[in-house]
Each structure stands twice: as structure tokens, then as C-alpha cells.
Design a binder for these strands. Structure first.
Length: 505
RNA sequence: GGGCGUGUAGCUCAAUGGUAGAGCAGUGGCCUUUUAAGCCAUUGGUUGGGGGUUCGAGUCCCUCCACGCUCACCA
């Protein structure tokens, strides 16, 4: 067990003394009659009605502040619904009970308190305590120096702010920083409203394997694992795509999944090794329909979560109450960089044109990669307002159908907001022969030894050979959407337990 | 992986190379409507780890660890 700090030793000693007196510091049963919010609401109703009886309540919560004043004590307790002041008075409970509280109760302890709801002279709704008992003794003090309520707002003074401790001990961060709790409330509201929108549009929520014998659907490095009894190498999925599209073959027309993807790559303010993705596949739709649908979905979600179709991210107002900008990738690059990718049909030519403009060029990159680099560098940061960029190079889009009149360009779009890529969609390939060829173009092989990083998913092709309806597919980084809605600059702030290195403690 | 920066009490932060401090929390006392309650007293440190320079290192140097920002990477 850990070494205890002096502060912890003091509390352990209090715990021991309670136990010596036969007092259970962690009782099994609680007699709570109201949440704090319910008690406050009941009291407000009683105040409106002169005939109404007084509100007697048994409340439970964590002690967040204590102000002992001789023969009276004020304290605030907090439960999941809110906080309320406790008022202990020697006249009501006796000096002995008052002293007992002072001796054995600390900030962070959970307490049950019974009594009548009333207003103090200063007008604060409070519980006049007639009896109380310990529900859970806290050994480690919460990392907050002090809290107060100013104009109804909880103000924390010198609260926990070290990011490392906040992420490693998220429980303490959440316990002490109400704003952090709000971010996660918003996160889960966001996911719920995505779900609600998809359900209302007739999509079926499904679950597909996270442990996969062959990974695919994206260009990321996977995490590998191993099933001992089956003696089988497995991968954590990098996308849901190939499994969800198998379901279209099976006869489900509209499916979606919200879940975790895992990518064994760099960590940044917008990348975490595991992240939440929403993907849907929609039979008989194409990327134009998906684009319209995306616009509707995000306007709906933003309004559901924030109450209006606009919000502020990094000081800039982002509006979803108007149509998204729609920019053809080729035209966008012409406008921003002056380079027309149609005039540079090989990687060498394009790289030369880029170098002429003093752009950094990744040596050995394919033409598609160079185009994507330019998009990421010169266009993406400028897309603050919701923007669709459409029609991408074939060679970086192996699952997307080409345009009818242009075999080198595919029907694909990405959605941007706040200078970040948010989603990615295309008219999906449903021609098994075309798909096989595209896989082979990407360097995937039937022999896993040749290129074990990009194994060819033969079962997926088999599924497609049974007949897959034309369809449009879509994937969105849910964490990034939450970053936008919560106005948070890093993905870590919207992940409950973001990845950190081992601390070695 | 590169560059820059940070790491001091439970929390938030000070400290020209010269005795490691403050506020809050904690502990003891006073105080019967407070709300960062107040007043008096007081405990608390291997200055992230290791090594070096120096009469003397929180401070300068080396190294390791963690975190942050940034660049690179990232269909």
C-alpha cells in the first residue's frame, strides 16, 4: 500500500477512533428521501403555498465546504444533482453532536443529514440538521483548496489544474472541477442526440467486431493482440467500414455504429490511440445524399446539445443555421495555392510545381498523398465554418467509386469545421471486381507475407460478390465534434481517461 | 522522433549560487445565521530521479523520467 501523507494519517486516525467507538464509517444502507435538487424544488413549491407543510428531508452527499462558528456550523454538501448548505446548531442537536462533527468529519467525506429545509437569514436554502451520520470517510483530501458560492456559481480557489494529475486522476479532477463534469455531460448528450437522429431516420444501430483477424477500412497502423487458446493473431479494429458494409449485403439497408477505433500512431491534440467513431452505411444513397444528410444531422445535434444552431470555438462563431460551403478539392487548391492538380498528372510534376511555390514536399509521396498534404496544410486550417470538400484522388480512396466521367477522381467528401477534419464519406464501391483491383492497387496482397500491413480481405470481397446495393458511407470523429461543441482545444479534455505514458509510480 | 518549456508542502504558487517561504487545506484554541467566514497559535519539504561543478545548488552543467506547447507523422 501507498505511503500515506500526513494529511492522510490524520484522517486514518479519525477513522480508527470512529471504529473504536463501534461506528461504521462505510455503512451499507442510506435512508435518503430526496436528491438535493428534489429537496430544493420541494422547498420552493412549499414557499409558494402558505398551507403547505414544512419539507422534511434526508439528504446525502459529499462535504465540499465547512465553516464552523462556535456553536453553529455551516457546510455545503454535493450530490449528482446539486449542492445545498447544511446548518448545524447546538440548540438543535446539542454541543456533543456539534463537536462530533468537527472532530470526525472532513472535506470530501460523504454524509447523510436529516432535517427541515429552510432559508437562512441571508436567504440561502439550507437543511437545518437534526441528525447526521457518516456514509463514507475520505482518506485522501480532494485536491481543492477551497470552494465558495458566489451569485449561485460555484467558485473554486486554487483547484487542481496540473494537466497530468487531472488526466491520471480523472476521478479527482471530476470531483473538484464542475466544468469538467459539464464537458462530459455535453459529450454524452452529443452521442445521445446523434443516436436519436440516426434512429429517427430509420437506421439500425449495430455492433461489429473490435477484435478482427484482418483489419481494414482505413490506412492506419493497427494494434495487434493474440488469442491464446485459438493461437490466433488478432487486430483491434481501425474502422468499422468493412463489417458494416457486409451488413448491407445481408439485407440491412441503413446501419450505423458508434464505438471505439484503435490506431497505433502518433498522439496529438486531435489524435488519441483510441477514439470514438460514428459510421453509417446507407443503401441506395450516394455521396451527394450523404452530404445533405450530414448537414441536417450536425445542425440537429448542435441545436439539441447547445440549444441553437451556432456555437463559439476558439473565439470564432461557427454557424450551422446556414448551408455548408461546398468546395471541389481541385478548385479549392487552385484558389488557395494556385496549383491546378489536373495540370500535374504525375507525382513528379506535382512535386515540382509545389517546390516552385516553396512548399514542403514529402519525398517519395504519391500524387494523391501530395494532394492530401496540400489539403491538410493549406485548406484545412482555413475551414472554420462548416465546409465540404469533394472529389478526391482515386489513389488515396480505395473504397470509393470513381466519378462516371473521370476514372482518376472518386465521389468522396470530407467535412471540416473549426479548422479540423470532422468526417469523411463516399459513394461506396459495390463492384467486387473493381474493389479487388483497387485493393491490389493499394499494395494489398493475397499473401500476407508480401505485405502483412495491408492484408487483402477476401471475405469482404466474397460478401460483395453476393451483391451489395449501391450505397453511401460516412464516418465521423465523435471526439472532435465534442471538442468543437465544448470549445476545448485538445482531444484529451473530452476523453475521460486519455492515454498517457506509464508514470512509473 | 526533433525543437522549446515545465516539474518546490495535499492544492495553487514564491524564493540574485548563500538558513526553502506564502495563501488555502491540516492541527490546537475563540466565536450561535456564515458563505474564499473571521481572529490567535501551529505542524508540514529527499525542491521529479541520478550524477557533476562549487566553500556552498531549488537555482549552473550532464543524464534519465513525466507532462505541456510546437513541428514531423497520421487514406
Amino acid at each position: 500500500m501507498a505511503d500515506y501523507t500526513n494529511l492522510e494519517k490524520v484522517r486514518l486516525e479519525k477513522l480508527n477512533r470512529l471504529r473504536e467507538q463501534g461506528i461504521e464509517a462505510y455503512p451499507r444502507r442510506v435512508e435518503r428521501t430526496h436528491s438535493i435538487q428534489e429537496a430544493v424544488e420541494a422547498f420552493l413549491a412549499q414557499e409558494e403555498d402558505p398551507e403547505a407543510p414544512e419539507i422534511q428531508a434526508v439528504l446525502a452527499g459529499r462535504i465540499r465546504s465547512v465553516r464552523p462558528m462556535g456553536k453553529v456550523i455551516f457546510a455545503h454538501i454535493e450530490d449528482g444533482s446539486g449542492r445545498i448548505q447544511l446548518f448545524f446548531r447546538a440548540n438543535d442537536i446539542g454541543v456533543e453532536q456539534l463537536d462530533f462533527f468537527n472532530q470526525y468529519f472532513d472535506l470530501g467525506d460523504f454524509i447523510q443529514a436529516s432535517g427541515k429545509i429552510f432559508r437562512t437569514r441571508s436567504g440561502e436554502i439550507s437543511l437545518a440538521v437534526s441528525s447526521y451520520r457518516m456514509l463514507a470517510k475520505a482518506i485522501t483530501p480532494l485536491p481543492a483548496a477551497k470552494e465558495s458560492v458566489v451569485d449561485g456559481e460555484v467558485v473554486s480557489h486554487a483547484t487542481l489544474s496540473d494537466p497530468e494529475t487531472r488526466y491520471r486522476q480523472r476521478y479527482a479532477d471530476l470531483a473538484v472541477n464542475p466544468d469538467v463534469r459539464r464537458i462530459f455531460q455535453l459529450r454524452f448528450n452529443t452521442i445521445r442526440s446523434i443516436r436519436h437522429f440516426m434512429d429517427s431516420r430509420g437506421f439500425l444501430e449495430v455492433e461489429t467486431p473490435i477484435l478482427q483477424p484482418i483489419y481494414g477500412g482505413a490506412a492506419a497502423q493497427p494494434f495487434t493482440t493474440y488469442h491464446n487458446q485459438l493461437k490466433q493473431e488478432l487486430y483491434l479494429r481501425i474502422s468499422f467500414e468493412l463489417y458494416l458494409k457486409r451488413l448491407l449485403v445481408g439485407g440491412f439497408d441503413k446501419v450505423y455504429e458508434i464505438g471505439r477505433d484503435f490506431r497505433n500512431e502518433g498522439v496529438s491534440y486531435k489524435h488519441n490511440p483510441e477514439f470514438t467513431q460514428m459510421e453509417f452505411y446507407w443503401a441506395y444513397a450516394d455521396y451527394r445524399a450523404v452530404m445533405d444528410f450530414t448537414e441536417e444531422m450536425l445542425a440537429y445535434v448542435v441545436e439539441e446539445v447547445l440549444g441553437e444552431k451556432r456555437f463559439t470555438y476558439k473565439g470564432q462563431e461557427i454557424r450551422l443555421d446556414q448551408p455548408w460551403a461546398r468546395i471541389e478539392l481541385r478548385q479549392g487548391l487552385i484558389d488557395e495555392t494556385g496549383i491546378d492538380i489536373q495540370e500535374h498528372l504525375t507525382a513528379e510534376e506535382l512535386a515540382a510545381a509545389m517546390k516552385d511555390l516553396d512548399m514542403e514536399v514529402d519525398p517519395g509521396a504519391s500524387r494523391g498523398k501530395l494532394i492530401d498534404d496540400m489539403l491538410g496544410h493549406y485548406l484545412e486550417p482555413t475551414f472554420i465554418q462548416p465546409t465540404f470538400v469533394y472529389d478526391y484522388p482515386r489513389e488515396i480512396s480505395p473504397l470509393a467509386k470513381t466519378k462516371p466521367d473521370d476514372p482518376d477522381t472518386v465521389e468522396r467528401f470530407e467535412g471540416f469545421m473549426g479548422g479540423m477534419e470532422l468526417c469523411n464519406a463516399f459513394t461506396e464501391i459495390n463492384d467486387p471486381l473493381d474493389q479487388e483491383e483497387r485493393f491490389l492497387e493499394m499494395g494489398r496482397s493475397y499473401s500476407s507475407e508480401e505485405d502483412e500491413h495491408h492484408p487483402l480481405d477476401e471475405d469482404y470481397l466474397r460478401a460483395m460478390r453476393y451483391g451489395m446495393p449501391p450505397n453511401g458511407g460516412f464516418g465521423m470523429g465523435v471526439d472532435r465534434l465534442v471538442m468543437l461543441l465544448a470549445d476545448q482545444p485538445t482531444i484529451r479534455e473530452v476523453l475521460l481517461f486519455p492515454h498517457l505514458r506509464e508514470s512509473g509510480e
